[in-house]
Computed example of a mutant assay.
Amino acid sequence: MAQATKESFEKAKAFNKFDEIYAPVLPGLKDIVMKHQDAITDAFYGALSNDPIAAKIVAGRVDQLKATHKVWMEELFNGTYGDAYFDRRYKIGETHVKAKIAPYFVEVITSFLRRAFAEILIKEDPAALQAALAILDLDALIIVGAYHEDRMRRMSEVTGMNQKLLETLMSFG
């Protein structure tokens, strides 16, 4: 099911030379970013709690979600971004889809985290900041891909059309 998103992920990594340029930089940033992890996560969930829709989604689960967020952040800086990484990130996307979290939140959350990481890493060097932003972009691509694939699956079920045919028809614009 995740094949189209997986292909996009691999193409995006190749296009940006992610594995050659950014992946080697990310493990060296882990300690720097994780020193600020609590502050970033607190600010992140504070912002979500101030949004009426997001507040309902996170209500009663903030501590659990903060722990999950910490694991997610640590994995951003592990230095390995292959199949296992993709599969974990895609599962996050599927979880968001099942919870009926609007894709809008993936975009605004990624934007929030880009700014938070930039604030920390701007003091390091441009390569550090570029690497952190590159991995956030890849994560957003995967998670949003799960939404796209879910929509295509549902459209296929409703129309009875093969998903490949639907993709082809949509490509004609």
Rank of each mutant, 00 (worst) to 15 (best):
104 Y>P: 00
64 Q>M: 15
108 V>L: 07
65 L>H: 14
49 S>P: 00
67 A>G: 13
109 I>Y: 01
66 K>W: 10
107 E>C: 02
73 M>H: 09
65 L>G: 07
82 G>C: 08
95 T>D: 14
105 F>M: 01
100 K>M: 05
107 E>Y: 02
56 K>L: 08
75 E>W: 07
105 F>I: 00
102 A>D: 14
85 Y>Q: 12
61 R>H: 15
74 E>M: 07
99 A>T: 01
86 F>S: 10
57 I>C: 01
62 V>T: 15
53 I>P: 01
51 D>Q: 04
94 E>A: 09
109 I>Q: 00
54 A>R: 10
51 D>Y: 04
81 Y>Q: 03
87 D>C: 06
58 V>N: 03
94 E>I: 11
54 A>L: 13
79 G>T: 06
52 P>L: 07
55 A>S: 15
50 N>G: 14
107 E>G: 07
108 V>F: 01
99 A>N: 10
102 A>I: 04
55 A>Q: 12
63 D>I: 04
109 I>A: 15
85 Y>L: 12
77 F>P: 02
89 R>C: 07
58 V>F: 11
51 D>P: 02
84 A>M: 10
76 L>S: 12
68 T>Q: 14
49 S>W: 02
86 F>Y: 13
59 A>H: 05
59 A>K: 10
99 A>L: 09
70 K>T: 13
54 A>S: 15
96 H>S: 05
92 I>N: 10
53 I>W: 00
92 I>R: 01
104 Y>V: 12
77 F>K: 04
81 Y>M: 09
65 L>R: 12
57 I>W: 05
59 A>D: 00
99 A>H: 03
99 A>Y: 03
107 E>N: 05
97 V>H: 03
54 A>M: 15
94 E>H: 02
77 F>W: 10
53 I>R: 07
100 K>Q: 12
84 A>N: 11
54 A>Q: 14
91 K>F: 15
70 K>V: 14
96 H>D: 03
61 R>E: 13
110 T>K: 06
67 A>Q: 13
96 H>P: 03
65 L>Q: 14
68 T>M: 13
89 R>A: 11
97 V>W: 05
73 M>T: 13
99 A>E: 08
53 I>K: 10
73 M>C: 04
110 T>R: 06
93 G>S: 06
90 Y>D: 01
66 K>S: 12
92 I>C: 06
91 K>L: 15
85 Y>R: 04
91 K>A: 15
97 V>P: 01
83 D>N: 13
108 V>W: 00
99 A>K: 05
72 W>S: 12
77 F>L: 09
98 K>P: 00
59 A>T: 01
87 D>A: 15
84 A>D: 14
98 K>D: 03
98 K>N: 06
66 K>C: 11
83 D>I: 05
106 V>A: 11
84 A>I: 09
59 A>S: 06
90 Y>I: 08
62 V>P: 00
75 E>N: 15
98 K>G: 04
84 A>Y: 10
78 N>L: 11
87 D>G: 07
57 I>N: 07
77 F>H: 10
61 R>G: 13
71 V>Q: 11
66 K>T: 10
102 A>E: 08
